[in-house]
Write a protein that binds this DNA or RNA. Structure first.
Lengths: 150, 150
DNA sequence: CTAGAAGCTGGAGTCGACTCTAAGTCAAAC
DNA sequence: GTTTGACTTAGAGTCGACTCCAGCTTCTAG
């Protein structure tokens, strides 16, 4: 069951084979990858799981150097749990901040979308309108200051 | 009231003067920046507002090329609202997806934090403990598979 | 037996987004 | 009147994170 080629892992994780080798060079793998015939990489399920963690950390904006740091702690084995915790907690703070920021952005974008939908005489989805109800013609609204012209 | 130097705008927006000039070169400003004595940039409140929008778009992961595209639409004036809307809606989808992803990441991290806190014999914050209650010594838990060793 | 697919390595290239440097202008403070 | 400091430009440099290339081996199918 265990024993995946780099190609299989690429398919499974969504990373390219290039990236998998790159991550390995960068020291992002907790254990050195086993090698099979002709020096080919043989990934265990554990390797793939760990890669999954790395991918999540990356996706949440943790830079590779920090992932490496964390990986090194894990590789070093028991005894440094406090440090690992610190890394994780710091990152969690950053993620929360990022979510907050994203929320603000979303508000802005949603506001703008609403404004343009209004300008174009749309109410939400066209399909939401009562069929047959005369769609109001574009009412030639004067541009509000605060909107996108100027 | 209107008429800010590049330095003032930098301070106000949190962008560096370098970045402000860079953004301008990249065509991210809706209107060309006014120039004062000796060719110095003089920013209007409108410029700063627009920069605020750009910053939010960037912060939510919109690449500069897309911000430029949107800016060009705005600069082109009335008549392309449908296109602007499309850009915004697409971006909103990406932001929502990103928030989802971040949420997953947060779950993972929070889980790991909880695991390490458990391993270290902490319950939440130390300050949450009843003072004087004997803190349990680290119970030498066997490592669960699924956790960070292997 | 040979062609093609997949793997290997070391190193180079790319891309996005800044970030900085050099050489110069200008206004105000001392 | 010179020094300081904020500004100007064109262009170069940096950094993170890939992404690809050349040249090689090795396995499988026809």
């Amino acid at each position: 069951m265990s024993g995946l080629s780099i190609g299989q892992v690429a398919e499974r994780t969504g990373l390219s084979v290039h990236t998998l080798r790159f991550y390995e060079r960068e020291g992002l793998l907790a254990q050195p990858v086993r090698r099979g015939t002709a020096g080919r990489r043989v990934y265990s399920e554990g390797d793939v799981d760990w890669l999954g963690v790395c991918i999540r950390l990356r996706a949440s904006g943790m830079p590779l150097t920090d992932i490496r740091r964390y990986t090194e702690l894990v590789r070093a084995g028991e005894g440094n749990e406090t440090e690992r915790l610190e890394v994780l907690r710091e990152h969690r703070e950053r993620v929360l901040a990022q979510m907050h920021e994203l929320d603000e952005c979303l508000k802005l974008i949603t506001h703008k979308v609403a404004v343009y939908e209004g300008r174009l005489g749309l109410r939400d989805n066209v399909t939401d309108c009562v069929p047959g109800a005369s769609r109001p013609r574009r009412p030639m609204v004067l541009l509000k200051p605060d909107e996108d012209t100027q």
